[in-house]
Design a protein around this nucleic acid. Structure first.
Lengths: 351, 351
DNA sequence: ATGAAAGCGCTAACAC
DNA sequence: GTGTTAGCGCTTTCAT
């Protein structure tokens, strides 16, 4: 018995040795191989070693399909997301992935190209055949209602960034409180009014930030000015920044995310308005680059790591059979940098 | 026979109806259910409808583990990546995901936390049990050699961002040509020297950009100054920007990516150096935000969509048995904005 | 400590 | 056009 590869054996697809092959080579039953493979006790050390050797020689890799079929578990979770375009999603997914790896789960990414019913239900259908034990949905914007209909029954679901807290388990940042902090920061600096460049109207988080912005202003006895809706992009922040920057009475802008804040600041620079002297700008997210925007951006930090981690842990608990629904709210916090200050000269009170 | 749910049946895990259950309900064989489920021809329209109805009533979902076990294909590919932190990776993975969905494949994300041997081989091992038909590796930096050892044999592999074009099929942007364009753009504007803030020394793409930068300068009869190595972060761009900005003879900076360019510009602003009047800055990547940096950033565009799409298509061809190895190089292009111009006053020739 | 048998859910191959 | 048989690779009984 040489240790040379048996050509006939290694030729038929590599990496395809089965428990049976290993068993034959080690002179034991398939059962024993399985036991060794799964680290069960009650295996003679000598036998174990022989099996291990045979595995190594054959390059044995357990077939996860067979395992999953037998066990009914895939050790995989699905993440349905609208796209990897927005910073928050990326960071959240990154955290989910890392946390999943820690729990020895892997992550399947299911992209939804558009927020149409067809696209979403397509994703669900694909998903339902995709061998996952649970699903995390990050859809950002309306449509969940229709989608719910086609959700494969029985799959544990956790939703991030949604208004469906009554129907699903939801994990999310405290958007409203973040917006409140932003507005109060500006008001505390002496600004008499705060303008808002919001995210898209369909976005859940944009809506919650917007509402909190209005609520906080009203709480201070200020009637909020008309909102400007952007689409999260720096371009849209730029165009709204141009609009606002041209109005002398605007001294404080709360942008719905850092990208739009960046765009707005660019517009203000173009208009020759000083930041923060003439206009204060605050963002939302605290993206990594915010520290070196010009000027460095005051913003609201979202702890995406926490959101992702909590979402995964919550989901895994459901996969393991936990019933009770406990929504998770991750705090947001104010990060003060250089883009906000007291207004240099007071504009007229009522714009 | 009422159409009410049989409690015993629906109680045992929901969504678990099998071909057998459907077959019984529709009064046909499991085989016929399978045929309908897979859209085969040669099924009587009436029968097909009856089966379809039963499926709907039972909420039947094919079990993908069983399918994969039977077919030996998972319709899933694995993507091993270092992290979702860098912009390029994110965009590439986004494109891979979308393209995979188009081909009705799904994508499993396998994160590697650190570039240690342990982490990487751990990822491979996890992967080998993870039911994928092929693998795309985006490791960015050295370590592939060790990893190769533990790669499960027989799995098709495509590598992005690597120097392993001789051992693996590699898909990547034309880093060298991008760097060449950047340097020639600056030289063409009249700069006598171009300083470079490079990515980390271990990074493949950073190395290729760096080498092309040196080559291009030498080609123009200029001896390149010492490199400054950053870590892709805007912070590192900022600290190197401070260093370079303090030296009056520096009129042109080529940053290894847009984030570092942003950091460098922030430093130049702090030092009161005008961009592009005193110093021109060019980046690499063309991230979305680059248009609203201040000033809008001249940069080299990488077509991450193409990279991701080509990587997936190449991989799928290999999964389908194609043998020949054809590496793919995706072109990069110069995008001129406002951060570069002719130097306003010529500094002394030799720094 | 080890083995034999049975079956997870599905489908290819072969009947009829 | 439809059913029967068999088996993918693994693991959970139940024996021994």
């Amino acid at each position: 018995m040489t240790s040379t590869d048996d050509p006939a054996q290694s030729a038929r697809k590599p990496g395809r040795a089965s428990v049976g092959d290993v068993a034959r080579r080690a002179g034991v039953s398939a059962q024993t191989v399985s036991r060794v493979s799964n680290g069960h006790a009650h295996v003679d050390p000598g036998t174990r070693q022989r099996v291990l050797d045979s595995m190594a020689e054959l390059g044995y890799q357990p077939n996860s399909a067979a395992r999953a079929l037998r066990r009914g578990r895939f050790r995989t979770i699905g993440v349905i997301m609208f796209s990897l375009r927005t910073l928050g999603n990326v960071n959240t997914i990154n955290a989910i992935t890392l946390e999943a790896a820690r729990a020895d789960y892997s992550v399947k990414l299911i992209p939804v190209r558009e927020h149409t019913i067809g696209q979403v239900s397509g994703a669900y259908n694909r998903l339902s055949e995709q061998a996952v034990d649970g699903v995390i949905i990050i859809l950002e914007a309306h449509l969940l209602d229709q989608a719910e209909l086609t959700l494969p029954p029985g799959l544990p679901v956790v939703v991030i960034d949604s208004d469906a807290a009554d129907r699903y388990t939801v994990v999310d940042s405290d958007q409203a409180d973040g917006a409140r902090q932003a507005v109060e920061h500006l008001l505390g600096l002496g600004h008499r009014q705060v303008w808002h460049i919001a995210g898209p109207e369909t976005s859940f988080s944009a809506t919650r930030r917007l509402e909190a912005w209005q609520r906080t202003l009203r709480g201070a006895g200020i009637e909020p000015p008309p909102v400007l809706h952007g689409d999260w992009s720096n371009e849209s922040g730029h165009s709204h920044g141009l609009t606002l920057g041209r109005r002398a009475e605007v001294t404080a802008i709360f942008a719905g995310n850092d990208q739009m804040a960046l765009g707005a600041m660019c517009a203000l620079h173009e208009l020759g308005r000083d930041i923060p002297g003439d206009v204060s700008v605050i963002g939302f997210d605290d993206m990594e680059e915010a520290t070196t925007f010009w000027p460095p951006l005051t913003t609201i930090r979202q702890d995406f790591d926490q959101v992702g981690r909590q979402a995964l842990q919550t989901l895994l608990r459901k996969v393991d059979g936990e019933q009770e629904r406990s929504n998770v709210v991750v705090p947001t916090s104010l990060i003060v940098r250089k883009s906000t200050s007291a207004p240099e000269r007071m504009p007229d009170a009522h714009p």
